[in-house]
Design a protein around this nucleic acid. Sequence first.
DNA 1: TCCTAAATAGAAATGAATTCGTTTTAGAAT
DNA 2: ATTCTAAAACGAATTCATTTCTATTTAGGA
Lengths: 144, 144
Amino acid sequence: MEHQHVTALKEAGMKATPKRLAILEALNGLSCYASPEELWKQLRARFDRLGLPTVYRNLEELAESGVITKVIHPNRQLYYYFCHNRDHHHHFVCLSCRKVEDVPSCGIEAMAEVVQQQSGGRVLSHILQLNGVCGSCLRSGAPQ
Amino acid sequence: MEHQHVTALKEAGMKATPKRLAILEALNGLSCYASPEELWKQLRARFDRLGLPTVYRNLEELAESGVITKVIHPNRQLYYYFCHNRDHHHHFVCLSCRKVEDVPSCGIEAMAEVVQQQSGGRVLSHILQLNGVCGSCLRSGAPQ
DNA sequence: TCCTAAATAGAAATGAATTCGTTTTAGAAT
DNA sequence: ATTCTAAAACGAATTCATTTCTATTTAGGA
């Protein structure tokens, strides 16, 4: 279990520090997404010295390297989720209980309908946004 | 032109105040998304008294009623865009020049490919997130 | 066991966004 | 045209999630 996470970190080129591992374990033990502060409060019980910036930094780095997933929330806070699904997919996140359900990549309207029927939940809104650099910027050598 | 916006506001059940109209006009005059503060700075030249909270409030209300579109940005700032496309669609937003291109709703992978080829740009990442309430929350009467 | 780049602490700063009590105003009613 | 009232705006002050900074510690290769 734990060694598996050590390996995941090594593969991502990150040192397997106790605190980094603990953050990963804590997320792994949750079935929902969590905020940096929540994880910090939970982990402070185990580490007498643990800075909140350390939690922020690690979560961001872990998300950056693809080990965990960042959740975009309407309240504009940061949340993270440990998703084991290695296939390309998307998420149905519950704004109420924070549960995360995997959604295969497909037509978004049909997707919303299927998710609603399969989960018994209600899709209130969706975010679909492609980020990148447009053609004219690419040609003008604007920052990537 | 302007009367068209007055009508749009009335239809949304909002008073057509000069400042609200000006905010809408300012967004309409842009071919890209803008931040509340940018719009505020631009409009302060025309109104000796214009509070930044007023801009924030109006943009949020206009987005809420569907008159304008909120852009979700990796830098976590708020941006808004005046989109005239009434059909259901999504957006390809350029992180560099802020240009917004409409994207029809379809399979997201194929979509990214089509957008890249048609725009000559580069899709670096995408956000696809369904927000809502899951089945168990619905059944337990959790907040919508 | 060294050594060094990476990681952490923790106080302080940041700054986008919001709150709040007051004042003003759009637009319906008269 | 005038009155009235709920909606809108003001703007200083505040909030608070997130980040920065410099000194200190540590993981893990040599």
